[in-house]
Design a protein around this nucleic acid. Structure first.
Length: 578
RNA sequence: CGGGGAGUGGCGCAGCGGCAGCGCACCUGGUUUGGGACCAGGGGGUCGGGGGUUCAAAUCCCCCCUCCCCGACCA
């Protein structure tokens, strides 16, 4: 490709609304252009990156035995009503009402894939089967942001496995999981599969593929000692608590806490009364409702954030008002059992410590409340959001919290969808109608260019790994139009590299050397070859790695060999880092 | 959905009642060519939309739309 023909222009300034580094660089370097909030056009450079990512995914899925299909983005709303996701995913569904009926633009394809392939999976003889597609998805995101990282229209590669049994499903899951690892390895980005929460898609075992990045909206807990890794929403800490061991705790007593409602306010107020209490010695009591709408109180140490357990949800304002004995700011566990209210507590709440708890009366808190003596708990669990330094649940070592971007997610769905969809059945060996076990797997294709750009750049611009770079070689010809020697050498290198199948972009523009060098840095091809009047007079050209910055001079007659070797080396390195 | 902010050429911005401007980008000619050059000339705008006030509105008032940030939400 010649830059005089390339549909792209670099920009000195990024749009003011571009916040993420990847967003700024991809726009400035001419890879993408925003058409609307969360809606982007891929320009030639951007599409080349996207296509490379797709190619890697296709190869690895094909090698794993998955078969490519293409499901419709436009889906009849009826299939969404059958699983009730028309309601449960209402907030992200893009709906469409046209002459032909009511449709949604698919945010994901579980219903559609079942409708599409079920007839072909009619017998146990047809199983196992895994299909995948690379499709545009639509989600009415509450807040699109960070360029390509969170958009309303995006490309995803989603796979679906169908198996006879749970055991077989686990095998299929492992198979795709391994393919995911190879995909991430080949793209060449640091990643961690972490245990995750399954969210509204349902199902049992699942993993998120996290790429550490400062811009990430997710966090995962990571134990460097034993390798335990889990999304912040799923992570737990060790339940091994020795307790405070305060020894004798006196009788519990009431204290007037006036307007103090939050834990911090209560601690401050007590301090002003001469009572020194740490937030960790208070108990935060949160009102939840269970799946069957029963009131449940959850107790966590005052300095911790409640992780709402599965099957529970916070009370709405109206629901809260239905229980007159709940006084906002002073809720506590004492005598809740007598009211028939279920109480659950974090494992770290122990019986040999006097706690500060809400007094269940306006402006009242109880001090020295002791578990087992002053209040009881029906059940213990891990109920707090893990923070930096918490002990690993497996080996007790302190865990790190890492900010990251979710680039993939794999699920063992099991029977979640077949239970809701009549056609999701096959004839078993004994002839009986049986539901198949499903797995589903999503990988953010259009997120990759952004994620890689996010973690691989410097002040001058993008730095692509050769695996997904639009071009392997950026051929910078200084004074191309004014120096015959430069022009001839550049054309020769360009022609020979092209013949060898090495993707090269030639800067044949009639602009200053500075502009060309700056643009080359900004655009981020892994190998830069500079042909300039100074060096070509001595029969030399320069080769430099974008990632390293340093360059070496090579005689023109050895240029092609040297460049080819460098390409091979880079490809080898990216395979090695696997 | 709540709070805050912004809409003027492709991008970045100024102008804030009286001729719609600047830098980058773009076009023509010339000089340049190793780290975002220079000279001369040129093209491009329903000033987000609608309504109002005024002799006169990008500028003041009202309504709407869009976008951004923080939060809520996020297979």
């Amino acid at each position: 490709m010649r830059m005089t023909r390339l549909v792209a222009k670099t920009q000195r300034q990024a749009p003011v609304d571009a916040e993420a580094i990847s967003h700024r660089l991809l726009v400035r370097a001419g890879y993408i252009r925003r058409l609307s909030s969360g809606v982007y056009a891929y320009l030639p450079l951007g599409l080349r990156v996207l296509r490379k990512v797709e190619a890697i995914i296709r190869q690895e899925f094909d090698n794993a035995g998955a078969q490519e299909v293409l499901l419709p983005a436009l889906q009849p709303v009826e299939i969404w009503e059958e699983t009730n996701r028309s309601a449960t995913m209402d907030d992200v569904l893009m709906r469409l009402e046209v002459r032909g009926g009511k449709f949604v633009l698919g945010p994901t394809h579980e219903e559609a894939v079942i409708a599409a392939v079920s007839p072909d999976l009619a017998s146990y003889r047809d199983l196992p089967a895994t299909v995948y597609q690379i499709q545009t998805k639509f989600r009415d995101e509450a807040r699109p942001r960070f360029g390509l990282l969170r958009t309303r229209e995006f490309v995803m590669a989603d796979a679906y496995s169908f198996d006879e049994s749970k055991e077989a499903m686990r095998e299929s899951y492992r198979n795709i999981f391994d393919a995911y690892c190879r995909i991430f390895d080949r793209i060449g980005v640091e990643y961690y599969p972490v245990e995750a929460d399954s969210g509204s898609i349902g199902g049992d075992v699942n993993h998120e593929f996290m790429v550490p990045a400062a811009i990430g909206e997710d966090h995962f807990a990571s134990c460097s000692n034993c390798g335990y890794r889990a999304n912040i929403e799923a992570a737990v800490r060790s339940s091994n608590f020795s307790g405070g061991g305060q020894g004798e705790v006196g009788r519990s007593y009431e204290v007037e806490t006036g307007q103090a409602k939050s834990i911090d306010e209560v601690v401050d107020l007590l301090k002003s009364k001469g009572i020194e209490v740490r937030a960790s010695e208070t108990i935060k009591t949160m009102a939840l409702k269970s799946k069957d709408s029963k009131l449940t109180l959850a107790l966590v140490p005052g300095d911790r954030v409640l992780k709402v357990p599965h099957g529970y949800a916070p009370l709405s304002g109206e629901e809260f008002a239905q229980y007159p004995f709940l006084t906002l700011g002073s809720i506590g566990p004492i005598s809740m059992g007598d009211r028939g209210v279920r109480v659950i507590a974090d494992n770290s709440i122990v019986s040999n410590l006097g706690y500060v708890v809400g007094g269940n009366a306006e402006g009242i808190h109880i001090l020295d409340a002791v578990l087992g003596r002053d209040f009881s708990v029906d059940d213990f669990d891990n109920l707090v959001v893990v923070t930096q330094g918490d002990s690993c649940p497996r080996c007790e070592a302190p865990m790190d919290l890492r900010r990251s971007v979710e680039a993939g997610h794999t699920f063992q769905l099991g029977l979640t969808y077949p239970q809701k969809i009549r056609s999701a059945r096959f004839s078993g060996e004994d002839g009986s109608e049986t539901m198949y076990f499903m797995g589903c797997y999503g990988i953010g294709v259009s997120r990759f260019p952004a994620v890689v750009a996010e973690v691989s750049n410097d002040d001058a611009g993008l730095i692509w790994p050769i695996s997904i770079a639009p071009f392997a070689v950026h051929l910078v010809a200084i004074n191309f139009s004014g120096n015959e020697e430069v022009k001839a050498a550049a054309e020769q290198i360009y022609g020979e590299l092209s013949k060898l199948g090495i993707e090269v972009i030639l800067d044949d523009r009639d602009v200053g050397a500075g502009v060309k060098l700056k643009d080359a840095d900004l655009m981020g091809m892994p190998i830069h070859v500079v042909v300039g009047p100074k060096t070509i007079a001595n029969g030399l050209i320069e080769i430099k790695l974008r990632s390293a910055g340093s360059s070496r001079s090579v005689p023109l007659n050895l240029a092609i060999d040297s460049i080819s070797e460098t390409v091979v080396e880079l490809i080898g390195n990216s395979a090695l880092s696997a």
